[in-house]
C-alpha cells in the first residue's frame, strides 16, 4: 500500500487537515478516537481484574490495587474520566439529533452538552484530588 493512497486521510486538502475541520467534524473525530480508546481500555480493565484468580484469597489483586492507587495511576484514571464523559455526552447529543431533538439549535446543544461535560469532569477531579495529592498541594 502506497503512502500517497492515504492522502484523503492525512493530506493538506483532506477533510481531516486541522484547518479544514469545523466544530462538528472535531466533535466526530473526538468521538471516534475516544470510542476506540475505550475499547482498548476494556481489555486492559479485564486483564487487571483477572489477577484475582492468580493467588489464593486475591492477594495478587490486592497488591495490584495498592499499586494502582498511586498518584500516577489515579492521574491516568482521570484521563479515563475525561474520555468517558466526553464520549457519553457527545454520544447523547448524536442520539438526540437522530431522534429529531434539538437539530434546529445544533450549536447551542453542542455547547450545552460540552458545558455539562466540563462540570462532570471537574466533579470527577474533586472526587479523586486527595488520591493524586495525598499530602495536599503546598
Amino acid at each position: 500500500m502506497k503512502i500517497s493512497s492515504f492522502k484523503w486521510l492525512f493530506g493538506r486538502n483532506s477533510e481531516f487537515w486541522p484547518t479544514n475541520m469545523k466544530t462538528g467534524m472535531w466533535a466526530w473525530v473526538g468521538h471516534r478516537l475516544t470510542g476506540l480508546a475505550l475499547v482498548a481500555y476494556v481489555f486492559l480493565h479485564l486483564s487487571f481484574i483477572s489477577t484475582a484468580s492468580m493467588a489464593e484469597g486475591g492477594a495478587d489483586f490486592d497488591a495490584l490495587m495498592e499499586t494502582t492507587s498511586q498518584p500516577l495511576f489515579v492521574a491516568m484514571d482521570f484521563l479515563l474520566v475525561i474520555v468517558v464523559i466526553y464520549h457519553a455526552m457527545n454520544g447523547l447529543r448524536v442520539v438526540l439529533f437522530d431522534l429529531g431533538v434539538g437539530i434546529r439549535r445544533q450549536k447551542l446543544v453542542f455547547w450545552v452538552t460540552m458545558a455539562i461535560s466540563a462540570v462532570l469532569i471537574v466533579g470527577g477531579l474533586l472526587a479523586i484530588w486527595h488520591l493524586v495529592f495525598p499530602e495536599g498541594v503546598a
Binding site: L46, I49, S50, A52, S53, G57, G58
Partner: peptide
C-alpha cells in the same frame, strides 16, 4: 469467568 473468585470468595 474472572469474577468467579470474587463470587465464591471470602
Amino acid at each position: 469467568v474472572i469474577l468467579f473468585p470474587f463470587i465464591s470468595g471470602a
